[in-house]
Simulated assay, not measured.
Amino acid sequence: MQAVFFEVPGGPDVLQIVEQPCPRPGASEVLIRVLAAGVNRPDVQQRRGLYPAPSDASPIMGLDVAGIVETVGDCVDMLRVGDAVCALVNGGGYAEYCVVPAVQCMPIPRGFSFVQAASLPEVFFTAWNNLIWLARLETEETLLIHGGTSGVGMAGIQIARRLRNATVYATAGSEEKRAVCTAIGAHAAVDYRGAWDDEIRAVSAGEGVDVILDGQAGPDTQRQLDLLRNDGRLVFIASHQGPTAVVDIRAVVRRRLTITGSTLRPRPASYKGRIARELVEQVWPLLEDGRIVTRIHEVVPFRHVQAAHRILDENRQIGKVVLAVDPALAETIPLPNKR
């Protein structure tokens, strides 16, 4: 099979398409013929040498795919050969074939193409894990999402609005991006390069927020803690502005604040399988009737994977960049799986 590979970390130019052995599924896994694969920020970090794959995962990049089940393991009874699925994978998505635990596969939402389906798993798994499970976002609480037009940001805004009736604020770096945030449900969006904390205080009538979802960390951490209401929760999904911060621990204790973070990739398949089931039960119906939407920034042919990574390096994307691994079929809409 063909797969994307790099020998040394670096910029997009290090990415090459090479011949690799086709993987074989284990007893609880399936082999997917990949038609489309999502491009995500962790892929960029892996390419830069900042996010190595776990020892038990494929070294090939790619965390979400959509395609056709090619082979099922001996212990798999929930999927059949020929099923159209999308899946959160543990690596290996930038390839013509990919192995994934069966419990991490989900049916493609009705009416969605393979490209659209490939844009869903990583961002919705991440948003659900961090907002619903870790942050414990409750009905009608107030949420701030930094990077509102990232894939995770857009998923989080819509989950919070549609399933928790939350008041949602977002940050984004351009007028166009801020307009997208409000179009999909954010009550207000502000420029993260300015006094965003003061602007959020202003739009929240000085009350601040209950939950913050952030991928920057670094020197802005205390500003975020100061913006939280009592019993507030700050959840980190990355630390792009620095791995350390000076914070007022006494205030954390006195105001009962929670600071947490997560990496989903090393979690066991059973953990991810639980998220998959909740997404199919609670989010997929909203995708199918249009109350939650996915936004594809650009579909890039597999052979132009370097160009796809440049889009993320330059922070040009609004929504998801997707690789068309099989350009002839990637944008087709599959028939529902038969049972």
Rank of each mutant, 00 (worst) to 15 (best):
residue 260 T to L: 09
residue 155 A to Q: 01
residue 25 P to A: 08
residue 92 G to R: 05
residue 101 P to H: 09
residue 193 R to M: 05
residue 168 V to T: 08
residue 59 P to R: 08
residue 13 D to S: 08
residue 248 D to E: 06
residue 298 E to D: 02
residue 17 I to Y: 05
residue 108 I to M: 11
residue 285 P to I: 13
residue 93 G to T: 06
residue 181 C to S: 05
residue 176 E to C: 04
residue 44 V to W: 08
residue 250 R to E: 07
residue 305 V to S: 03
residue 24 R to T: 12
residue 163 L to A: 01
residue 159 I to V: 09
residue 236 F to P: 10
residue 14 V to W: 07
residue 228 L to D: 11
residue 334 P to A: 12
residue 272 K to R: 15
residue 123 V to Q: 10
residue 136 R to D: 09
residue 58 S to M: 02
residue 7 E to T: 05
residue 166 A to K: 04
residue 112 F to C: 06
residue 72 V to P: 00
residue 135 A to S: 12
residue 144 L to R: 12
residue 147 G to P: 05
residue 293 V to P: 01
residue 324 A to S: 13
residue 326 D to H: 12
residue 139 T to E: 04
residue 224 Q to A: 15
residue 286 L to I: 04
residue 173 G to Y: 05
residue 248 D to G: 07
residue 42 P to T: 07
residue 94 Y to W: 08
residue 266 P to V: 02
residue 105 C to A: 11
residue 84 A to H: 14
residue 135 A to R: 03
residue 142 T to D: 13
residue 58 S to A: 03
residue 54 P to G: 03
residue 272 K to S: 10
residue 225 L to V: 12
residue 94 Y to P: 00
residue 322 V to Y: 00
residue 270 S to E: 13
residue 98 C to K: 01
residue 57 A to C: 15
residue 25 P to Y: 03
residue 118 A to W: 06
residue 261 G to P: 12
residue 131 L to T: 01
residue 189 A to D: 03
residue 114 F to S: 07
residue 169 Y to T: 11
residue 327 P to M: 05
residue 110 R to I: 14
residue 186 A to H: 06
residue 7 E to K: 10
residue 337 N to G: 09
residue 4 V to P: 02
residue 100 V to T: 11
residue 202 A to N: 14
residue 59 P to D: 08
residue 212 I to C: 09
residue 294 T to F: 11
residue 80 R to H: 12
residue 240 H to L: 15
residue 297 H to G: 04
residue 298 E to F: 00
residue 32 I to Y: 13
residue 152 V to R: 12
residue 32 I to W: 13
residue 171 T to G: 07
residue 50 L to P: 00
residue 180 V to Y: 06
residue 18 V to C: 05
residue 125 F to P: 04
residue 14 V to H: 10
residue 138 E to D: 12
residue 28 S to C: 04
residue 91 G to R: 06
residue 134 L to Q: 10
residue 20 Q to A: 14
residue 295 R to T: 04
residue 337 N to C: 10
residue 2 Q to K: 15
residue 260 T to M: 09
residue 289 D to G: 07
residue 290 G to M: 05
residue 299 V to P: 02
residue 218 G to W: 03
residue 177 K to V: 06
residue 158 Q to M: 01
residue 48 R to G: 03
residue 236 F to Y: 15
residue 1 M to R: 15
residue 35 L to I: 13
residue 335 L to G: 10
residue 233 R to E: 10
residue 19 E to P: 14
residue 261 G to K: 08
residue 298 E to Q: 06
residue 7 E to I: 03
residue 294 T to R: 08
residue 251 A to G: 14
residue 242 G to A: 00
residue 119 S to C: 14
residue 265 R to L: 14
residue 246 V to W: 05
residue 102 A to H: 00
residue 226 D to C: 07
residue 113 S to E: 09
residue 46 Q to T: 03
residue 122 E to A: 09
residue 183 A to W: 12
residue 288 E to H: 07
residue 217 A to I: 02
residue 27 A to H: 10
residue 226 D to N: 14
residue 143 L to G: 01
residue 154 M to L: 09
residue 35 L to P: 13
residue 132 I to G: 03
residue 270 S to G: 10
residue 83 D to G: 13
residue 50 L to M: 11
residue 131 L to F: 00
residue 209 V to M: 11
residue 54 P to C: 06
residue 320 K to Y: 00
residue 219 P to H: 11
residue 22 C to G: 15
residue 314 E to R: 15
residue 181 C to F: 04
residue 216 Q to R: 15
